[in-house]
Structures are given as C-alpha cells and as structure tokens.
Amino acid sequence: MTRTGTGDDPEDIADLLLRVARKIQLAEPGEGIDLTHLEGMVMTRIDDEPGITPTDLRAALNLKSSNMSATLRSLEAKGLIERTRDEHDGRMVRIRSTPFSAENLTRVRAGWAEMLSDLLPDATETAHLAAVLRRLDAGLG
C-alpha cells in the first residue's frame, strides 16, 4: 500500500496531521526543554487537569504503570512537575505542573509561533483550521 497523502479522505487527513505533528515535534524547542512524545502527552494532561492523580493520569492515557512511573520521574527530575499529598487523604498523591513548567511552555509556544507564523498568515484560515483541530481533539477524546 502506498501512502500518498494527497487526497481529502479521512485517512489522508490523518496521515497529514501525523506528518505535520512529527515535524513540529522534531523542530528545535528553542529555549525550551526537549520532551519526548510521551512526556509531552503527560504534561498536556496534567496542565488540563491540575491535581490529577497518577492512577487517573495513567488510565486517561492508557499507559502501563511502569511507563507512567518512569515518565513522572523524568518530568520531576526536569523540574516540570511536583507531587503533593492530597490534603484530605494523605495516602493520595496529586500532580501539578511547576511555575518553571509554565515558563518552559511559554518559550516552546513562542518557538512554535515563530515557526508557523509565516505559514499561517491569513487570520480567517487560521481560525478555521483551529476550529477543525479543536473539533477533532474533542471528538477523539
């Protein structure tokens, strides 16, 4: 089977989205800390749900416990997350991103903006693309 990526069918759109995502991910993060794909997914979920538990995070991303533990250790070592005991149940751990993580994300997003600004010069086209991508993101869970 040959992948052409030249059609407008859903499978071609998926292929194009993956190609673009890989190119964005492989681009230098500028001044930001380089994250693996998995670390990026975990950070996005933590930012979306501050205070999420490791168990809920693992379930949401459908990861093995060992992969989740290793990823959280790596993110903690990079200074991007902090683990705290739940104030109501001391046995439970909550995960939040750090202020350093927010600064890092700002730097990375600035690099993305610089990389894409010349490619998305039309505000109407950009707004439409953003709406479509948000719909896909919400629809895929």
Rank of each mutant, 00 (worst) to 15 (best):
R3F: 07
R3M: 13
T4S: 15
T6H: 02
T6F: 04
G7P: 07
D8Q: 05
D9K: 01
D9M: 01
D9L: 00
P10L: 02
P10A: 04
E11Y: 09
D12V: 00
D12F: 00
I13T: 10
I13C: 07
A14Q: 14
A14F: 13
A14V: 15
D15R: 14
L16M: 14
L16I: 14
L16T: 12
L17I: 15
L17V: 15
L18R: 14
L18P: 11
L18F: 10
R19C: 06
R19L: 02
R19E: 15
V20R: 06
A21R: 11
A21F: 10
A21V: 12
A21Q: 13
R22E: 09
K23M: 04
Q25P: 00
Q25E: 06
Q25F: 04
L26R: 06
A27G: 00
A27T: 05
A27W: 01
A27Q: 04
E28G: 02
P29S: 06
P29Q: 03
G30N: 02
G30S: 05
G30D: 02
E31G: 12
E31C: 08
G32H: 11
G32P: 02
G32I: 01
G32A: 15
I33E: 08
I33C: 04
I33T: 13
I33A: 14
D34G: 11
L35H: 11
L35G: 09
L35S: 13
T36R: 04
T36L: 10
T36Y: 10
H37D: 12
